[in-house]
Design a binder for these strands. Structure first.
Lengths: 216, 216
DNA sequence: AGATGTGAATGAGTTCACAGCT
DNA sequence: AGCTGTGAACTCATTCACATCT
């Protein structure tokens, strides 16, 4: 059955499609909004209606992970939010480290560190000695060569790459070698990661180009 | 209202899936890299091998829009890049306007305006009088109430929303009313657009949450 | 020969429709 | 009754396999 090619190791048992994961994250956002409105219970239909989603899909997505709803009634908003929060690994803090404290890096440090519940920017590094030593929020920018120590001391799990495309692969490798657990890449280049370390690309150029297509 | 300026023999846009569009944009990036390496011709196999793609998919994607390749030989790099460039609407400038000149807005203004060939940030607006009047790159921040005039004068086509979630829908509506042609939204909220105006969401929280899932 | 372009087959993802629980 | 959870049907996307062209 499972033919073993010269690929990486066997995958995790909990297979979840990126599309589903994306939606779960969005559902949680919707539930948070309902919580603020003091809504206690909601049916998949209502949820779908409010946020332009598909009721069936909501149910299918959720049912993958357990029976969170009450038949004939709907979902308990608080309870479901908690379940999703836990499922997505947001029930504990995630420390982030930013590589490249230029314009984008600095903006991300403040933007992400500010209002993102489970996430916290705890460190920043840069190659440029002129940027090292600057104080940004709750941390001081350190030299990129200190990465292993910075990761160890700060407990950072997620590395955010905000460096130019040319420097991205090198810094990605360094992050992984320094023991970072996941990478979020803002450089406009497709990086080669390694199997155990999830890597997500946020390519602003591609977003713009997709819009441009509709403006021809 | 969509006025189509016919210039050149571009294939019909037909319905194109967002996934395909995303890949075309990526193919173009790969071709640009090959151009820098002075590569003149490449086969779908080589292209796939170099950038971790599927050769069949490359051919299928491209074949939707014409016969760009030469059987038995491969694709002419320059020619294909030009075709994709034109197909994606990158053969002319696209002016962008940023709404919300806080940290993120300012960073985007410099980041996007700097090194993004076909795109140019030509204007920025903010609600805060303290930010109005600041000079950023090649433009001066103007009050958000001037949107209609700013759009008209600057010729901006793409509106970039870099405002808090609460203000995003209102500003999106204003952008559309002011005649903007497409919207790129960085606020962590799903906006209600209108049919003729393409809208793309870049939700940094969702990217982080998708990574967090793998760190449970 | 060697690579494209493409119908056919397979697989992934979504919607339908209804059984089953409250 | 009302709504969830889920197999079945369906639609969309990818891969296979090969006819076709240089």
């Amino acid at each position: 059955m499972a033919d073993r090619e010269d690929r990486g190791p066997v995958e995790e048992p909990e297979e979840i499609s990126p599309l589903t994961l994306n939606r779960l994250s969005f559902y949680l956002r919707c539930l948070r909004q309902l919580q603020e409105e003091r809504v206690k219970r909601i049916s998949s239909q209502d949820l779908a209606g409010r946020f332009n989603l598909s009721a069936t899909q909501i149910r299918k997505d959720l049912a993958q992970f357990g029976e969170f709803g009450i038949r004939g009634v709907g979902y308990d908003v608080d309870e479901l939010a908690d379940h999703l929060n836990q499922l997505l690994g947001l029930d504990r803090r995630h420390a982030m480290l930013i590589v490249g404290m230029g314009n984008l890096g600095s903006a991300l440090a403040q933007y992400l560190g500010f209002n993102y519940g489970a996430f916290r920017v705890v460190a920043g590094v840069d190659r440029d000695p002129a940027k090292v030593g600057r104080s940004l929020g709750s941390f001081v920018v350190r030299p990129v060569d200190d990465l292993p120590a910075v990761v160890r001391e700060s407990g950072a799990e997620i590395g955010v790459l905000a460096v130019p495309a040319e420097a991205a692969q090198e810094n990605c490798d360094r992050l992984i070698k320094a023991g970072i657990k996941a990478v979020l890449n803002f450089a406009p280049i497709r990086l080669k990661g390694i199997p155990g370390v999830p890597l997500k690309n946020v390519d602003l150029r591609i977003y713009l180009e997709e819009l441009a297509f509709f403006l021809r």
